[in-house]
Nucleic acid binder design. Structure first.
Lengths: 218, 218
DNA sequence: TGGCTAATGTACGAAACGGTACATACAATG
DNA sequence: CATTGTATGTACCGTTTCGTACATTAGCCA
């Protein structure tokens, strides 16, 4: 018992640690898949970037696709957790929607790897995502949070009542995803680097203005 | 001379036709690259889907990357042509911006292959696009068209004057690109198929409302 | 402490894949 | 209608890439 505890405490010194190996593979794989796409990612490259070997990918995840599925699931799960920390019930409706928009904006900018992963998955028509049953209806929390705010705003007359929460969420997502996912091509064609702090700050404010403007229109 | 003309006229009957072969390869390659991504696309598959052979890909385009570059250039060139047919100078400013938004929306929905190609290119950080010098500043026409409308609206007082044309274009692009590029994941997570006619029609109207609302806000 | 299992490493195989050498046939041209 | 270069087809090569058979070791537990 004492021995077990001690080895758990100094687990970082152990040569063999299933959890650690698994987590490291997942972390590196997330990076490689988001950088190179599913087909572009190389199993050997992922293995080389860890302190373990390719063999472990097959041992823990069954293969390339299994690893990719695990990456997808972990990434989406992290997003869900972030969304649940997004409290807006103490703010006035108008401030709440702006807050949600701006925090979503920040979250996207701070997690480009996840956005790229979503792009990759869409190239493949979401065929892998559909296999992960645990992710079905993952969007519900985000929609219901917005739904609450909209209901409060409708009741107080501060927000218009004929707009659906999912529509609002889609507007916000569109804008935020585009910033990150299409930064390369848009930047090239219009000579605008969307990732510099000042441009980012302006876009952030603009998004808030657009969302608030839309929801408060008479 | 007469012979030359005749063989040009019935070019579709010729066994050897450089232009036809080239065009067919380009067409099939556009489809395959947009469906599978750059790394996912197989040179052999592209060749098999045409009436010619893999050899011709190397003869006309030098290789897989050359073919992809040609696909990118052709696709963007088609977009530019479509944009140039977008006349809005005979409309009142408010109607003009709504028109631009809605036509852009339709264009995106009608050319999903192009949108997917842009996603693919962004996964690779636009590294190929940057190689096609002829595409530099391709965005300028779209921005200046909007710029004209905004100037007219500013002069007449119908549109606010503190908004940049590129910002408006980015809002419209974000919304339209998202509809097509992220249809799979968003549809799965929120149970909404964005490609059905009625949903599409509602989104179209919403986009117009948002853009007009933003630009006419006091 | 000795054995047993989970965890890991090595080395290799088969198929896929991008690319090319070489042969050949069509069609414009003089 | 012979010639010549463009266009096309075939067969193949070397490498990459996913995956696996087999050997081995670390650490837990009786």
């Amino acid at each position: 018992m004492v021995d077990t505890q001690r080895s758990a405490e100094r687990s970082e010194e152990r040569l063999r640690d299933a959890e650690r190996t698994r987590a490291e593979l997942l972390e590196v794989a997330t990076e490689v898949f988001s950088e190179q796409g599913y087909s572009g990612a190389r199993v050997d490259e992922i293995a080389e970037r860890t302190r373990t070997t390719k063999r472990m990918i097959y041992y823990y995840f069954g293969g390339k696709e299994g690893l990719y599925l695990a990456v997808l699931e972990a990434a989406y799960r992290r997003i869900r957790e972030a969304e649940q920390e997004l409290h807006a019930d103490h703010l006035a409706p108008v401030d709440a929607v702006r807050r949600i928009a701006e925090l979503t904006f920040d979250h996207h900018h701070d997690h480009p790897g996840f956005i790229r992963l979503v792009s990759v998955e869409n190239i493949h028509n979401g065929q892998h995502l559909k296999k992960v049953e645990s992710l079905r209806d993952l969007g519900t929390p985000a929609a219901s949070l917005l739904d609450d705010v909209l209901a409060r705003g409708r009741a107080s007359g501060e927000l218009r009542g004929d707009v659906d929460a999912v529509d609002v969420h889609m507007l916000i997502s569109s804008y935020c995803v585009f910033q990150v996912a299409n930064a390369a091509t848009f930047g090239f064609l219009f000579g605008r680097d969307m990732l510099t702090p000042d441009v980012r700050e302006r876009h952030r404010r603009i998004l808030g203005d657009i969302v608030v403007g839309w929801l408060t229109a008479h």
